[in-house]
Simulated assay, not measured.
Amino acid sequence: MPFTFKQFHIDDQGCGMPVSTDAVVLGAWAPLTQAKQILDIGAGSGLLSLMAAQRSTAHVTAVEIDDAAIQACQRNIDASPWADRISLIAGDISEIAAQQSQRFDHIICNPPYFETGPQSDKTGRATARHTDKLTFAALTRAFDGLLSEQGKITLILPIESLAAWNKALEQTLQLTLLHQCDVVSVRGKAAKRMLLLLGRNRATPAQSQLVLREPNNSYSQEMIALTRDFYLFM
């Protein structure tokens, strides 16, 4: 059953945030179809968990730390066709990784990435967007502790965060970049986001590009093909 966004709940503090292009592109691009155990770190209002459940037959574990987002996430899970395949865990992913014995064959994450700059006066939204609550170093350690031997990780980051991300990744010798897809918002402009696929098996990283919109602001054909199961294109 295709997932639609019309009745998707966000919390009243804005932590869950409106449905974002970043999350939709990440959820559609990630190679999830063969996964059996998927982990969604920083689930927010549950968008990625629902997309993962729709695109696979996996059991999905959603982890979220913010109380308001947790409530919105559980409402969205309960209202979905996949409630029996999605479990929500409330807590800090670093603490959970230290206690969790289960390993996942795919981890998906739309992490906080703004290292500097003004923070929202809404605590939940600031936590979701800034790395002071979940640093890249802490995130890579959690990835390493929770990923199965043949598992994969998919995330999305701004291009300007690449140096900081690579520095954190270098400290986790078990993880390596497998694919980087630069995301261009409008054809002809510079990429502002990057989709990353990580794993444990070292290989020459693949490179690709995804253009979201044409100069006339219409969706590109590649964006339509990637996300047609989640958007209703006119």
Rank of each mutant, 00 (worst) to 15 (best):
H9K: 15
D11W: 12
C15L: 10
S20E: 09
S20H: 06
S20F: 05
V25H: 03
L26F: 04
G27S: 06
A28V: 04
P31K: 11
L32M: 14
T33Y: 05
Q34D: 14
L39Q: 04
D40G: 02
I41G: 06
I41P: 11
S45M: 07
S45L: 06
L48P: 03
L50W: 05
S56I: 02
H59W: 07
A62E: 07
V63N: 03
I65L: 14
D66M: 11
A68L: 15
Q71Y: 14
A72Y: 12
Q74V: 10
N76D: 12
I77G: 07
A79G: 10
A79K: 11
W82S: 01
W82H: 05
R85C: 02
I89L: 13
G91P: 11
S94Y: 00
S94D: 03
S94F: 00
A97G: 06
S101Y: 04
Q102I: 06
Q102D: 12
I107F: 06
I108N: 03
T116I: 07
T116W: 03
P118D: 09
P118F: 06
Q119A: 11
D121Y: 09
K122F: 13
A128W: 05
A128E: 03
T131D: 05
T131L: 07
D132L: 05
D132H: 13
L134R: 06
G145A: 12
G145I: 02
S148N: 08
S148C: 08
G151C: 02
G151Y: 00
I156N: 04
P158W: 07
S161G: 03
S161K: 10
L162D: 12
W165F: 15
L177V: 15
C181K: 11
M194D: 01
L195M: 12
G199R: 03
R200K: 10
R200A: 04
T204W: 06
T204F: 08
A206E: 15
S208D: 14
R213N: 13
R213W: 07
E214H: 14
S218V: 13
S218P: 05
E222F: 09
E222S: 15
M223P: 00
T227N: 08
D229Q: 13
L232K: 11
F233Q: 07
